[in-house]
């Protein structure tokens, strides 16, 4: 069957599969507990895991349909309370399917109270050619709240040779600290846009991503250690901004990007969390 042409301005959010998930973590006697969870539609969490002791609650987010189709709306709300520490990840890549017109949307609202820490480390997102996708992540940190997040994208199913030529992708990331925006990126990436080939844009590379640690004042030694990390091919860059440490990647290979980000995360974690990195086992499968 030939896929239907993608209308330029189909609003079409009527159809599709809405899903939402709401999680709240609380610290109780040096433990972090998943004190509240509610879901609607096909978004779930597996039971809380404690591979590094009771202080850090690891949680696996599941989206059983395994892909996001035109018209779907996913909403995830996570709240981390004072002194609580949660690490969230996913069992595999998120897939944004080709759409016959309607927009697919995922919205993440992440809140961290003073003394709390959220590690938001989903695996990569793959955007199929012809997808119409809008992903937005809003992180609200109270003064003294901390966050680290990985956001990795691959345009097209590159493993099967697909190129992203006709889709629409919007990715918004906003981080607030004490109510004031400290990081803002709005990416509008159309499949036919010059940005995909431009030297200031993606320069033909299908993979891009950002790792951001927020709520820490990275010292010179940490910045130097991050910069000293080998980056074969010169695809990465690291910078320090007020209350932020930011690493960027642009390249051809998702695995290489992820390996670099995970290595950076392991360097940053002692400064951010006061404990060494403990790689979630799901990443090794």
């Amino acid at each position: 069957m030939t896929p239907a042409p993608v209308p330029a301005d189909a609003a079409g959010t009527e159809c599709g599969w809405p899903a939402s998930l709401s999680l709240a973590y609380r610290a109780l006697d040096h433990r972090t507990v998943l004190a509240h969870r509610a879901h609607h539609g096909p978004l779930r969490v597996q039971k809380a895991l404690y591979p590094e002791g009771p202080a850090v609650c690891h949680t696996l987010l599941l989206h059983p349909p395994s892909g996001i189709a035109g018209g779907d709306r996913l909403q995830v709300d996570v709240e981390v309370g004072p002194a609580a520490h949660a690490l969230l990840t996913t069992p595999g890549a998120a897939k944004w399917y080709r759409s016959a017109g309607p927009l697919a949307q995922a919205e993440q609202r992440l809140r961290v109270a003073a003394g709390g820490l959220l590690e938001w480390l989903p695996q990569e997102a793959i955007v199929f050619d012809g997808a119409r996708a809008r992903a937005s992540t809003c992180v609200d940190l109270a003064a003294g709240g901390r966050f680290i997040g990985m956001d990795l994208w691959c345009l097209g199913r590159t493993a099967s040779g697909e190129r992203y030529r006709s889709g629409r992708l919007a990715v918004d990331t906003r981080i607030r600290l004490g109510g004031r925006t400290i990081w803002l990126e709005q990416a509008r990436i159309a499949g036919d846009a010059p940005l995909l080939g431009s030297v200031a844009g993606l320069a033909g590379a299908p993979v891009f991503g950002t790792l951001i640690a927020a709520g820490l004042d990275a010292d010179d030694a940490l910045l130097a250690a991050c910069r000293a990390l080998p980056d074969p091919g010169g695809h990465g860059g690291v910078t320090r901004l007020p209350h932020l440490l930011v690493a960027r990647w642009r390249g051809d290979c998702t695995q290489a990007a992820r390996a670099w980000f995970v290595h950076l995360w392991s360097l940053i974690r002692p400064a951010l969390a006061g404990r060494p990195a403990q790689t979630p086992r799901i990443w090794n499968t």
Binding site: A187, A200, H235, R250
Partner: peptide, 11 residues
């Protein structure tokens, strides 16, 4: 609809 996505400039 504003876009400040410029990974080449960032790097």
């Amino acid at each position: 609809d504003w876009s400040n996505f410029a990974p080449g400039l960032a790097l």
